[in-house]
Amino acid sequence: MKLHGIIPLLLTSLLAPAQTPKRPGEGARLVVYVDPGHGGEDTGAKGPRGLREKDAVLDLAAALARELEASGMEARLTRDADAFVPLWDRARMANQAGADLFVSLHLNAARTRAAKGSEVYFLSLGAGDRESAAIAAQENGAGPGPLSPDPANVVAGILDDLAQEAYLRESEKLAVAIQAQLNRLGGVRQRGVKQAPFVVLRGAAMPAVLVETVFISNPREEARARDPIFLRKAAQAITQGIRHYFAGVEATPRRRPQG
């Protein structure tokens, strides 16, 4: 059978039939896979007063997990310690668990210390605009380990694109819902929802977003990222965005757990 005949069959097995998603408190709990970016040898960006991105997002992830659980959802983390997880493995973990959503947490950085605010991204299968592509390149190029799956596995690469493309519209809705709540945080300026070719989002067969919570390069925002009270507020905002997303969803494809 030719490759173009195999792909639809494989995609059918990859995606479960569309169904109305369960809301918190209705039967099986929604599963949100939370990805604290970087870790281990990959420190991520570093603030002017020494805060490392990998540490701040791990604290934020723990706060987000608590808020999600308190809201009736099930939270799982790609890492819960200072360890590096290859970028492609992060989405694969969510896929294997049959997660409903994938949220990758990061802190932004800019050459100018005046840059501030939150940005929420969903995947672009193209290059994206210059600024977004530069941010994605920074996140994609950091840390040890492979950035892409086995190049010999052509079918897997095509399926990654097809599966993610099926969720781009839902990912955009999720990004908008989370961004709206982050904009409500006092002093956090709206920067808007954007698209960029983040590797960590590429293989997720579910709605997936990457949240750049604050600018670690801004001394004031770096201080916020150290503050447990602010991290809790940010976690609450993200959780509220997720709840609003599910409240507005009528039918979302669900991923079957893989062995």
Results as ranks from 00 to 15, higher is better:
A109C: 11
K194S: 05
R90Y: 00
Y121K: 05
M93K: 04
L231D: 14
V103I: 01
L87Y: 03
L125S: 09
E69S: 03
T43W: 05
A75D: 02
V200S: 03
R255K: 08
V85D: 14
G186E: 15
V32Y: 01
L64H: 04
Y245N: 06
A70T: 04
L51D: 07
A204N: 04
A166G: 13
G98N: 11
A251F: 10
Q179N: 08
L210M: 05
E222A: 11
D100H: 05
P219I: 08
D89L: 11
G37D: 00
E131L: 12
L3D: 13
A225Y: 02
N108I: 06
G50S: 01
A223C: 07
F84E: 09
A134I: 07
A208P: 03
F102W: 07
A70P: 09
A166M: 12
A81N: 12
S124Y: 00
E53P: 01
H244Y: 14
S124D: 13
A196L: 01
S124V: 06
P48L: 10
G186V: 12
A223R: 05
R130F: 10
N153A: 14
P149R: 11
A235N: 12
L174E: 06
L10P: 11
A177S: 12
Q181W: 08
A127F: 06
I178T: 05
H244S: 15
A234N: 08
E172F: 08
E26T: 08
A136F: 02
P151E: 15
L107F: 11
R255S: 09
A127L: 14
E41C: 08
F198P: 01
R226A: 13
E67V: 03
A97E: 13
S148A: 14
Y33C: 09
L11M: 13
L11V: 07
P86Y: 04
Q164A: 13
A75L: 02
H4P: 15
F198N: 02
P253E: 14
D160F: 14
G50Q: 07
Q96W: 05
V57L: 04
E221F: 07
E212Q: 02
K233D: 15
G39W: 04
P253N: 10
A225M: 10
A251M: 07
P151C: 15
G187K: 06
A208I: 00
G47V: 04
E250K: 03
A204H: 02
G248S: 11
P144S: 11
L201W: 00
S124M: 03
V154S: 11
G117S: 08
P197V: 00
G5A: 10
A237D: 15
